[in-house]
Design a protein around this nucleic acid. Structure first.
Length: 598
RNA sequence: GGUUUGGUAGCUCAACUGGAUAGAGCAACGCCCUUCUAAGGCGUAGGUUCUGGGUUCGAAUCCCAGCCGAAUCACCA
């Protein structure tokens, strides 16, 4: 199936050659969807051709229009407004498009073959010292969704996670637990492990601050106090012991991390995200260290007097970057180098995508350069899928001020609101308690996921915890609701034994609303492709919303089951069923489930 | 301060990457359920697209200058 736009662009090229002996490339022809208020389906912008025609815009458009109408079967008629040539496409074309989409239930998706490129998508990448929050939710949803979108555009995808399971921050919660934990476990305290550990991380920070304040009160300078804080020194000592694989520290580390993982697993499962391969920083940081030392030997990096290792990136227009601390321990960058090496050893990756917040743009710029320097030819091609922060109305979320929106809490809240809304409306009669709960979960999660994913990933976004996320308007549940209404109609049609998925009858007269809907359905493929090239699930979210709005108007204005004209009724059922399918598959790319009733 | 990035209705977001009269939702105010799910539909009101220049048939979009915000430039991850 060749794209309609391409066909028209080529036709315009021919028209220009025939009319004005002009040679233009297919790409330079602008064809766009006609504005809704104006008659027509596709519009050619003729301004760029005036230099060939040497005539006014109207006349040029008329001439090209006449040529196209004459030479392209699909074109029924045309009209000219200013420099815009609006082309009207034959209704039969739209009918056959609907038939085509019905017969190809995978319409829009490109299938994966053995030659398809292998893309690895890294996302989530949590620290094991605190539970996941709203920022992580955005990361996880974007990562999972972009992986699905890449699959849908014909890539093999491996979803991966790098768990930051070691480092001073982990030691802080371990130390706090040792000191003040009194042997508490997730079981004994009836808490998710990640929340339990998070509390001790906060506890450490509190005690540390207290210590500093006391030292400063005794007359010590703040910086000196931070350096000499006994707590911090203990934490550092613990990190050294950990690196030396001290038995007790290691055992404690393993125990506490396993608590956190149990907690994360629950959160991931509720979010509906998963991974094909998980890497742990504790396994990769030494590999990175090795590569850095190798680079040092080859003279790519240099050592300072205190023993720390640095890369000088002045030639690339950047600063100097530390790669190993003076005590020989590794930093963030070191482990990313190691992880990259392990991954490319494990898989024959064609493209590596990192889903990481835009606060780390600099980090990935540097990583790309360093990997290239170290001889990884794919270094320069790595893709940093950089997304914006989630902010509160008053600014950044701050864990210290307790303004962090916890992922588990937020999901609970969304599902609670979905439950009470649904119970009020009382539309789930006949459903068992489990079935109903499942719908509440689907609706609550849909509103949350859609709220996050409908926003352009590049942009920062605002979340106001005081106003709960909407269930009306441009929301996930609105889209689900439309889907449920279609399902209800289809259910009834099937109960009556109506066979609607037959070829559209030639006698059926399409209304402009119906043509709009079919047009929207045909755009699905190019929408997915655009979402993939721009790394933007938001494009799919906004497309689905537009489709739903159009459908609701149609649903309101037109009879479907009660339509008396049989072939028109069949057509409308078929159209509705296709809209539902595209909705379901589009939302599927966003990880949003679609209930048949709600 | 350097670099990167953003500024669109009261609020949250769109705008097919330079196209026609800048669109949705929320909030406000009117309508529409004895018709297929009203978590819906229709309407009213709301805009100097931060400001000022420039580029051209045409600018929210590109360029320059300024104002405001964010991120980053760490022996934190």
């Amino acid at each position: 199936m060749q794209e309609l736009e391409t066909i028209f662009k080529e036709a315009v090229v021919k028209a220009l050659a025939a009319l004005y002996e002009a040679e233009v490339s297919v790409e330079s022809v602008q064809v766009q969807g006609t504005r809704k208020e104006i008659a027509g389906d596709l519009t050619v912008v003729v301004f760029p051709f005036l230099r060939f025609s040497r005539k006014g815009p109207e006349q040029t458009a008329e001439e090209i229009g006449a040529y196209l109408k004459e030479n392209v079967d699909l074109i029924e008629d045309f009209s000219v407004i200013k420099g815009f040539l609006n082309l009207e496409i034959a209704a039969s074309h739209w009918k056959s498009m609907l038939d085509y989409i019905t017969e190809n239930p995978n319409y829009g998706f490109t299938s994966v073959t053995s030659d398809s490129p292998l893309v690895m998508v890294e996302y989530s990448s949590p620290n094991t010292n605190k539970p996941l929050h709203l920022g992580h939710i955005r990361n996880n949803l974007l990562g999972w969704s972009i992986a699905e979108i890449l699959k849908a555009t014909g890539n093999k995808v491996i979803k991966t996670n790098i768990v930051n399971d070691r480092g001073i921050h982990i030691c802080k919660s371990m130390l706090a637990w040792q000191k003040w934990g009194e042997g508490r476990t997730p079981q004994s305290s009836k808490m998710k492990g990640d929340h339990l550990i998070g509390d001790f991380y906060v506890k450490f920070d509190k005690e540390y601050k207290k210590e500093i304040a006391e030292l400063v009160a005794k007359g010590m300078a703040k910086e000196e106090a931070e350096e000499n804080s006994p707590l911090m020194q203990e934490a550092r000592e613990m990190l050294r012991k950990w690196e030396a694989k001290d038995e007790d520290v290691y055992a404690l580390w393993q125990k506490m991390n396993s608590w956190v993982y149990d907690g994360f697993d629950i959160t991931y499962k509720r979010l509906g995200v998963d991974f094909d391969k998980i890497y742990y920083e504790s396994d990769t940081y030494l590999v990175g260290k090795e590569k850095v030392l190798e680079g040092l030997e080859k003279g790519m990096f240099y050592k300072r007097e205190d023993g720390s290792v640095w890369a000088n990136l002045n030639a690339e227009g950047l600063d100097e970057k530390i790669l190993l601390r003076s005590d020989g321990t590794s930093v963030y960058m070191t482990q990313d180098i190691g992880t990259a090496k392990l991954r490319f050893d494990d898989f024959s990756i064609d493209k590596m995508v990192y889903v990481v917040g835009n606060e780390q743009n600099y980090h990935f710029q540097v990583l790309s350069i360093l990997l290239t320097k170290l001889g990884f030819e794919w270094g320069k091609d790595l893709k940093h899928f950089s997304y914006g922060m989630v902010e509160l109305p008053e600014g950044k979320m701050k864990s210290r001020e307790g303004t962090v929106v916890d992922a588990d809490d937020l999901m609970d809240e969304m599902i609670d609101v979905a439950r009470s809304t649904s119970e009020e409306l009382g539309k789930l009669e006949g459903y068992s308690k489990e079935e109903a709960e499942n719908v509440y979960r689907q609706v609550g999660m849909a509103s949350l996921k859609y709220f996050i994913l409908k926003v352009d990933p590049k942009k920062n976004m605002v979340f106001n915890p005081k106003e709960s996320i909407d269930f009306n308007g441009n929301t996930g549940s609105f889209i689900q609701y439309t889907f449920a209404r279609i399902c209800s109609i289809i259910r009834k049609a099937e109960e009556d034994g109506v066979m609607y998925n037959t070829t559209v009858d030639a006698d059926v007269q399409l209304s402009s609303q119906e043509v709009e809907l079919i047009k929207s359905l045909t755009r699905f493929k190019s929408i997915i492709e655009e979402a993939a090239t721009l790394y933007s699930p938001a494009i799919i979210a906004n497309y689905v919303y537009d489709l739903v709005k159009d459908y609701n108007r149609f649903y309101h204005d037109c009879l479907i089951l009660k339509e008396e004209n049989e072939s028109l009724k069949m057509f409308r059922l078929k159209l509705s069923s296709n809209v539902a399918q595209i909705l379901k598959r589009g939302m599927g790319l966003l990880g949003i489930e679609m209930p048949k009733r709600m």
